[in-house]
Amino acid sequence: MSDSATVSERENGLQRFRAGLWRENPILIQALGMCPTLAVSNTAINALTMSLATASVLLASAIVISTLRGIIPPQVRLACFVLVIATFVTLTDMLIEAFALDLHRALGAFLPLIVVNCMILSRIEIMASRQPASVAALDALGMGGGFMIGLITLGSLREVLGRGTLLDARVMPADFEPWQVMQLPGGGFFTLAALVIGFYLFDRRWRRQEVGA
C-alpha cells in the first residue's frame, strides 16, 4: 500500500469519527436506535451503561466484520453480521450481569435487544463491510461516542428534572418539586424533541458563524 493511500485512509477515518459525534449524530440527527433511547434513559446511570454497552458492541463488531469482509459471501452477509453482533451482545450482557446486577435488572430486556439496534446494523452495512478496519473502527468510535453523548444528555436531563438528582447525588435544592412526567415514557419523548430542537438551533447558528467568518 502506498503512502498517500494510508494518509487518505487516516483522514477518511478521522472525518468519519467527527461526523458520528456531531453532524451525523445517531440520536439527534439520524434518529436511529430510538427504542433504548426512549426506554432506558430515565436516569443518567442507566443511559451511561446502555450507551457504553451499545458503543462497545458496535466497536468490536465493526473491527471483526471489517477484518472478515473479504470472506463473507454477500448473499448471507446479514446473517453473518447478526451472528457477530449477537456474540458481543451476549458477552456484554454477561459482563454486566456479573459486575453490576442491579443495573442489569434495571436495563432488563433492552440489553439483549442491542442485537437488533438499527444504528449498529446500519454502521456495519454502510462502513464495516466495505472499509478497512482502521476506518471502520474510527467510524464505530464516532458513532458510539455520538450515541453516548445523546443518550447521557437525555438521561441526565430526565434525572435532574424528574428526581432532582444526578447519578443519584442530589443536585437540586431539597424542596425541588420533581417533574414526574420526566420519569415516565412521555418525558423521554418531550426531552428528546427538545434536545433535537436545541441541537438544530445551535448547529444552525454555529454554521452561520462559520460561513460569516
Partner: peptide
C-alpha cells in the same frame, strides 16, 4: 396536560 403529567399531586 403537561402540568397534569408533571405535577399530578398539585
Amino acid at each position: 396536560v403537561f402540568l397534569q403529567a408533571a405535577f399530578p399531586a398539585a
